[in-house]
């Protein structure tokens, strides 16, 4: 992985990395990618991709509202509020 790709990846992940960290990650991420390259090399032609191994299938739920409403308690956790709105610094 070159440093340019790492920079883009960090940006997409909203990570602010300094030069020292970039150096560290360049090596670590490259190693991780090598591992993926090994997996990519395996011939899986004709096999259905496994997206989940531990979960039962069709875990759907009925379209029914829950009885309890936690919204007031959840709102109490917000650091800043205005009425029932959660307030954050302007992102525009």
């Amino acid at each position: 992985m070159d440093i340019h790709e790492l920079r883009i990846t960090a940006e997409l992940a909203m990570l602010d990395l300094d030069e020292r960290e970039m150096k560290v990650f360049e090596a670590e991420v490259s190693k991780t990618l090598e591992y993926f390259a090994q997996m990519n090399a395996v011939d899986v032609d004709g096999l259905e991709p496994t997206t989940h191994v531990l979960m039962e299938e069709n875990r759907a739920r009925e379209d029914r509202t829950r009885d309890e409403n936690l919204s007031d308690r959840l709102l109490e956790e917000a650091p800043e509020r205005q009425g029932r709105h959660i307030v954050i610094p302007n992102v525009l």
Partner: peptide, 13 residues
């Protein structure tokens, strides 16, 4: 939904 007002953004989920 987000409403942008002055220095703040108001959020409704």
């Amino acid at each position: 939904k987000s409403i942008h007002r002055g220095t703040a953004t108001l959020l409704d989920y």
